[in-house]
Design a protein around this nucleic acid. Structure first.
Lengths: 367, 367
DNA sequence: TTGAAAGCGCTAACAG
DNA sequence: CTGTTAGCGCTTTCAA
């Protein structure tokens, strides 16, 4: 794979600049990498001028093998097309640039083996740091980063066990599932389905746990649970929605936006309307949620805060590699749309509300 | 900015492997970078084993200063959040990985100065090649790449003048505007508005030209043109849609999906329905186009083909730097939704159709 | 069949 | 104040 590059002409080096400016390569090096060192302003100018004339740009690769930082960060995600990650990437890239880094974005496509290859390639590049959203809870991949002393922060996908050994930034999946469900419960719904994603990563399970916890809080047992899972695709969403139409459910928590899209398509296909025929809450904020009419009620994860936190944490760890790893967990909020209607079990609801703590975000907006 | 990195422990090098395996660094180097050179299988094995044990990974940066390729490609786009570019990026990254490259994605945010900084940083990294979607038709930025002999291909954003001097992959913006408009004309509409983006890049103008050409083909003069432009934002889309409601227009070509979103929001806010009150065609394929009901009719750009073409062209140019630059232009297609209805000027339309060439894609789907 | 040694472009003591 | 010089990790003659 690594073949020789047939450079037509050699690229201009520090030596060329030195010749042109009539000085030594050391001086040129100082001009470009050591602001402290005092140089006669005239000399400095001469070097700069010479460099500009012949178009010199310092070779960061050569510089890095002498112990200087590389100027490259990496972000490795499992679902690059997922807007949740895309948005965070945009943010991270922009923060990194302000600090003088370029960032390499990689997509493991939910495949741990791919992830391994990518990480090895990144280690080969001796990147300065890495933000990783692991495809699976594979400790062996983070071990690789550790062995090469590459600072990293785990984003969103968590390691159940040894959490405190890693820097971590994520959002509370349990709380997302809980919030979505409570929102529907507060609107009076008692038969609520959860449409999820049959995944090896823990995130989804946590959302289901949140769903369950909310039901329990309203005194509902597992007889009231309706949980369907499928693979992560629109087609699966369509299928699962179809599966649900026979059921007694009056509301659905859509656990992932891709699945939500398929489900919605099915509902429209069947001529069903929301919130009339079915109340809906989706976990995530797909672009289309606000364009649909009636608008969808969403659970918004704090993408911006998470991106900022991940980037800062990484940058801190680069400047101080001995820093203790820390974990930061963010919570989601309800973005009210018009897809949640009052259920017929209206009276029950009022009782519920009275007997419990205030459910501020649970106010259903009725269109 | 480029500060020293305080490496806690030095990373493992070729020398460590040589020691461990009881051989010379030359041999280790051959094992890892020259498959041709014959080595006693036993020795090769010994080296491999030693390397695995101490976790050696070749330093690509050091390797590159001896003339080996870097293993890094870059993609620089002007609107990273734009799904059109995001989708192509995903594709390009995946092709590049198969060839052993990691890719650095950068976002110039439509700012030529940012683009300049980014490109300088990439040159400093001595990347092997670059796919660039320029913020503006700034030749000076491509000149930088040329001076450093970095192969590149221009993506989508074209240089009007010296086109043949660059590798180029793009789609025909004129044709997109034309197709959208003709689709509406064929459905009988005669008062068609074009909602565009007031941009310095030529793409948008080309779309408007296509719009005009289609009108002319149907015998309509500039008195029938309604063109509104604003900045590139949802808010502007909303405003422009508002501006249009008073007009006599029965159909709108939405020139960009961000603007389309704002416009749609406005129409919904006003309680207007499509295609009943207004027929719509959007240039681009936003995710939400298929979720809306009725679905939006879209002009789809061949993102996949473009990404493949750009990546292959770049890879070809890397292996053969003296290759003549080539230009590849792709065309769009109509994705029929249900947002185009027959206009009242139905009779005019039939006449038009008879007197002209067949307008195959112009078949309106009536819901 | 292998290894010694001369660099690649750059940095940083250390002299002058 | 500036330049000489010894490497950084790796590749590649060239000699053994």
């Amino acid at each position: 794979m690594p073949s020789t590059v047939s450079k037509s002409r050699k690229s201009v080096t520090i030596k060329d600049v030195a010749n042109k400016a009539g000085t030594s390569i050391a001086t040129v090096s100082y001009v470009f990498s050591n602001a402290e060192r005092y140089l006669r302003p005239a000399l400095r100018e001469r070097v700069l001028k010479a460099a500009a004339e012949i178009g010199y740009v310092k070779n960061a690769a050569a510089s890095s093998i002498k112990g200087k930082r590389r100027g490259i960060l990496a972000v490795v995600v499992a679902q690059f097309g997922n807007t949740f990650f895309t948005r965070m990437c945009v943010e991270i890239v922009s923060i990194a640039r302000q600090e003088g880094y370029v960032v390499t974005l990689c997509n493991s496509d939910e495949d741990p083996a791919q992830e391994r290859i990518i990480l090895e390639r990144l280690v080969a590049q001796r990147i300065d740091g890495c933000i990783l959203s692991p495809a699976l809870s594979l400790e062996s991949n983070t071990a690789l980063l550790q062995r090469h002393h590459i600072p990293y922060v785990i984003l969103e996908r968590s390691f159940p066990a040894s959490a405190t050994r890693h820097n971590f930034v994520g959002h509370d999946n349990f709380q997302s599932g809980y919030l979505a469900t409570r929102h529907l419960l507060a609107a009076g719904h008692r038969r609520i389905a959860f449409v999820g994603w049959d995944s090896p990563i823990p995130n989804v399970c946590e959302r289901v746990d949140g769903y369950r916890a909310a039901l329990r809080e309203y005194g509902l047992t597992d007889k009231h649970e309706t949980i369907v899972n499928g693979e992560l695709s629109e087609a699966a969403g369509w299928r699962m929605a179809a599966q649900l139409t026979g059921s007694a459910c009056t509301a659905i928590v859509l656990g992932h936006h891709d699945i939500a899209k398929g489900a919605l398509l099915y509902l429209q296909h069947q001529g069903m309307r929301w919130p009339g025929d079915l109340s809906l809450v989706v976990i995530g904020t797909p672009e289309w949620a606000g364009v649909l009419s009636p608008r969808l009620t969403c659970i918004e994860r704090p993408e911006h805060q998470m991106a900022v936190a991940a980037a800062s944490l990484l940058l801190e760890n680069i400047s101080n590699p001995n820093k203790q790893p820390i974990q930061r967990m963010f919570t989601s909020t309800v973005i009210e749309g018009d897809s949640v209607g009052k259920s017929e079990t209206h009276d029950q609801r009022r009782q519920s509300l009275r007997s419990r703590t205030a459910v501020s975000q649970g106010k259903a907006s009725l269109r």
